[in-house]
Design a protein around this nucleic acid. Structure first.
Lengths: 255, 255
DNA sequence: ATCAGCGTTGCACATAGCGCAACGTAGGCC
DNA sequence: GGCCTACGTTGCGCTATGTGCAACGCTGAT
C-alpha cells in the first residue's frame, strides 16, 4: 500500500543478515540507489539502521529496543519465564515458549539446551502449525469451528517423512492433543529433532501460549522424550498459575 | 526525508508500549487516521505490527526476528555470552555487554542478577557515555584525538549528584580508566546503583565492547564492588579470548 | 597521477500518498 | 430492542512527496 514504506521494510529485512553497502542494497531490492540512500537516512534517524564505517549499513539499536520492550510486556512471557528456566534446568534441553499469530506459530521466548547438539531457533522466528508440537497445542485450543476452518486452510508442506499431510489427519491429531493435554512432534518438522508441548493457560482457562521441549533424537529416543511429559506438564502448570490460571475441579477447559 | 517512512517509524515506536487503536495512534502522531491505517497495513504485511482483535495493534514478530537475527550475528555477543553467564553465576549480579554507537552506549546483551532488587535495563537500550562504566571503557578505548573531540561534544547532563559535569573531568577520568584497565561508575548514572566495567578485545587488541557488573548499593558498598574487579577482568579476558584476542607480552594496547 | 567504484546532490516529472467526507458496522446505553 | 456513538473502512481528487536520472566528488587502488 505504501510504496516507500514497503521498500524500507524490505531494506531492513535485507540487512538482517550481514551489513551491506548502498549499492548492494539498491541492487538487491531493485530500486535506484539514490532512493535507497534517502530511505536509509530516514531509517538511520530513527536508529533503525546504523552506518558502520563509510559504506556499510547494519540494523540499529531501535530494533532491539522495540523488540525487547514489546516482548517484555507480553504478560505470558513474563509469567512463564521462571517455568522455562526451571524446566531447562531440570532436563537440560531446549525450552520454547510460542504463541499463535496469523495462522502460524511465533517463538516468543527460549532457553537453550545444555548439550552441544541442539535445535536451531530464534525468538521471533515463525514456524508452521501442522508439524510442530507447539503448533498442535495452539491449534487444538481453538474452538472446534475455527479449528476445522484453520485445518482446511493450511498447505501441509512435507518437511520430513513424518509430516502430517492433510487436514483430516491433522484434525484427528488435534483431537488427540486436546484429549491428552500435550502434543508430540515426532520428527515431523526436522529430521533429527522431536518435541513435546503443553498449553499455558490464563485466568479464564484460555490458552495463552505453548511451552515445549525440543530434544535431538541422538540424545533421547521417543520413549525417553515421553518420559519427560510429566516435567513438561508441571512446568506448563506452573507457568499457567503465574498467568492467573486457577486449577478447576473439572480439570480445566480441555474437554 | 521520507515522510511516510518517518511516520511509520514513529508509529512503530508508539506501539512499543501497549497495544493501541487506530484513533489513538492517529492522534498521537498527528496524522489522519486513514493515513495511519494504510501505514499499518503495510507494516502488517511485513509482520512489523500485528492486529489484535478488531481494533488493537501491537508490534509484530518481524521485529523480534530481525532484532535477534542481527544480535545473533554480532560476533562479540556470541563470543562474550559464556563469559557473561559465568560472571553472573559467580557473583549473582546483573551483567551487561555494551557497545559504542553514535556517541552513545548500546546494551547488546545482559544477564539478570539473582537479587530481588536490581537495575532496570533492556537489550537495545541506549545510555550516555559520560556517566556509565561501560561508556567510560568504550570512550577510553578511542584514539586520543577522537577521545578529546568526543569529550568536548558531550552535554554532561547531571543525572545524580556524582555525575561528571565537564569535558576536562571526563578526560581525566578516561585517562585513569585506560591506566587501570577498568572503569567505575560510582552512582553517577542512577542513585542506588554502581557499576564496574572492563573492555572486551578482538584479534588486533581493539576494543569490541564493554562488559560490566551493576550492583545496587544496598547489596554491596563501594569496597565490596571493587573487590569484584578481578572477577570482572577475568570474565572480560575470557570473552576477549573467545573473540580472537591473544594476550600480548606488553599487556595489550592499553598504554 | 589516473582511474574506478561508490556515495552524494539537484532537478524535473509523475505518481504515490495524503486529507477529506461519506459509509458501514459493532457495541453500549437507555 | 432500537437508537446512537465510536470506530474502522472506502473512494476520490489534489498536490506534496518520493522517484529516477545524470552529473559530481570523494577515496582508495594500481
Amino acid at each position: 500500500m505504501s510504496q516507500s514504506l514497503d521498500r524500507a521494510l524490505t531494506l531492513v529485512a535485507a540487512l538482517a543478515g550481514e551489513p551491506k553497502t548502498l549499492d548492494q542494497l539498491a541492487e538487491e531490492i531493485g530500486v535506484h540507489k539514490s532512493t535507497v540512500l534517502r530511505l536509509l537516512r530516514t531509517l538511520e534517524s530513527h536508529h533503525f539502521v546504523h552506518r558502520e564505517g563509510a559504506r556499510h549499513y547494519r540494523l540499529g539499536s531501535a530494533l532491539f529496543d522495540l523488540a525487547n520492550r514489546s516482548l517484555e510486556q507480553r504478560d505470558v512471557r513474563r509469567g512463564a519465564e521462571p517455568a522455562l528456566a526451571a524446566l531447562n534446568e531440570r532436563t537440560g534441553h531446549t525450552v520454547h515458549l510460542a504463541s499463535f499469530e496469523d495462522g502460524e506459530v511465533v517463538y516468543i521466548d527460549k532457553v537453550e539446551g545444555h548439550h552441544a547438539v541442539r535445535m536451531y531457533s530464534r525468538v521471533g522466528k515463525r514456524a508452521p502449525l501442522h508439524c510442530t508440537a507447539v503448533g498442535k497445542v495452539l491449534a487444538a485450543a481453538l474452538p472446534p469451528a475455527r479449528r476445522e476452518e484453520l485445518a482446511r486452510s493450511l498447505d501441509y508442506p512435507a518437511l520430513t517423512a513424518n509430516t502430517i499431510r492433510d487436514a483430516d489427519a491433522y484434525l484427528a491429531e488435534l483431537a488427540g492433543v486436546a484429549e491428552r493435554g500435550y502434543a508430540l512432534d515426532a520428527r515431523e518438522h526436522e529430521d533429527f529433532i522431536h518435541c513435546i508441548a503443553a498449553p499455558v493457560r490464563g485466568a479464564r482457562g484460555e490458552v495463552l501460549a505453548a511451552l515445549s521441549l525440543s530434544v535431538p533424537t541422538v540424545l533421547l529416543d521417543i520413549d525417553g522424550l515421553l518420559a519427560l511429559v510429566p516435567d513438561l506438564l508441571a512446568a506448563a502448570e506452573e507457568a499457567s498459575v503465574r498467568c492467573g490460571w486457577t486449577r478447576t475441579e473439572q480439570g480445566g477447559t480441555s474437554r
